[in-house]
């Protein structure tokens, strides 16, 4: 097993709001291994983005993170601002769904990129420029020298995301966190960006965390997958196990409700009944229980712990029987 790069223990993220506290992430334990692609999948409010924003020290002002996060053995959660800035530039980087919001519209792409190297690596402008041209070429942007003098709005969405990836990789971070990196892009461009991430991982050995709601994107790229629901990890497995032998009812619900082109068209889509959970409430039992077809009395009373099923397969569920439509009755 590959060595672990990032270790998260007991991570909790809470927001203080006018209507009381909102529990965005609860009791999260996980690790990211060197060079792997870890997929984290969940719907809105599942805590998948807030987990990584907390680790990057980018939570909104009313947010607070507790627990422990170690990068290469060193505690990094809630570091002072100055130390965080260094860490973010040099050892881990994050890219977002909409690159436009992460870029300064008034500065050329070149200025935004060279600044990173001048600040973190003490390079001269000239040196930095040469490196940035190389970085743009590594993400397959042609005519890189000319593009450096262009402004973000002059790029298409796909090109902007390439620029963001190139910028994030300038300092050769060990960990690249991608939060819905292709959600705003067209499918043809999405396919290119996913191929690019895969190529960069192989070339530079960068560990990638891929946060998305899209099970198709995860299937394409991830080595391991974590499924989140209501701020909790409900299942974790190697990618083929998760798609082929999932053991959590929510994972099953997600996989069955996606319309897909690789299977015959069915007359009706399977659904997960009910609504997304209210994060201001902290149920005593399983947060998925109100929507779960397999729920029983214990699920209402007691939070299921995350337990190992062997083979690095973990899940948090009381139900012990078989999943699948055939067991569910008519």
């Amino acid at each position: 097993m590959a060595a672990s790069l990032l270790e998260i223990r007991n991570l909790a993220v809470r927001f203080t709001t006018g209507d009381g506290p909102v529990y965005a992430v609860n009791d999260l334990d996980l690790e990211v291994r060197r060079g792997e692609v870890l997929g984290m999948v969940g719907e809105s409010g599942s805590g998948k983005s807030q987990t990584w924003l907390a680790i990057m020290g980018l939570l909104a002002k009313n947010g607070r993170a507790e627990g422990s996060v170690r990068l290469g053995g060193e505690e990094i959660l809630n570091l002072p601002q100055r130390a965080l800035t260094r860490l973010r530039g040099e050892r881990m980087a994050m890219i977002f769904q909409d690159p436009m919001t992460a870029m300064n519209p008034f500065l050329t792409v070149g200025r935004q990129m060279t600044e990173v190297l001048e600040w973190h690596r003490g390079m001269s402008r000239r040196e930095a420029r040469a490196r940035c041209i190389g970085a743009l070429e590594s993400v397959h942007i042609t005519d890189a020298a000319r593009r450096l003098s262009m402004y973000p709005h002059e790029f298409s969405g796909g090109m902007r995301q390439r620029v963001m990836i190139a910028t994030a990789l300038l300092t050769e971070p060990q960990l690249l966190i991608c939060d819905e990196p292709t959600t705003a892009l067209d499918v043809t461009v999405q396919a290119q960006i996913l191929a690019l991430l895969d190529e960069l991982r192989q070339r530079f050995g960068t560990a990638i965390v891929l946060v998305t709601h899209d099970l198709g994107v995860i299937a394409q790229l991830a080595d391991r997958v974590i499924v989140m629901y209501a701020g909790r990890q409900v299942e974790q497995a190697e990618v083929h196990t998760l798609y082929g032998a999932y053991r959590h009812p929510y994972t099953e619900g997600l996989l069955r409700s996606v319309p897909r082109l690789d299977q015959p068209r069915s007359a009706r889509l399977a659904t997960i009944p009910g609504r997304p959970p209210d994060l201001a409430r902290r149920p005593a039992g399983c947060p998925f229980e109100p929507r779960c077809a397999y729920a029983s009395e214990i699920c209402r009373r007691q939070m299921p712990p995350l337990v190992s099923l062997g083979d690095a397969h973990l899940r948090a569920c009381h139900y012990d029987g078989a999943l699948g439509p055939q067991e569910r009755g008519a």
Partner: peptide
């Protein structure tokens, strides 16, 4: 280019 939620199929397929 439509992603397929099946890791085996997704990886066998030629990327656009």
């Amino acid at each position: 280019a439509v992603p397929i939620p099946d890791p085996a199929l997704a990886r066998r397929r030629r990327v656009a």
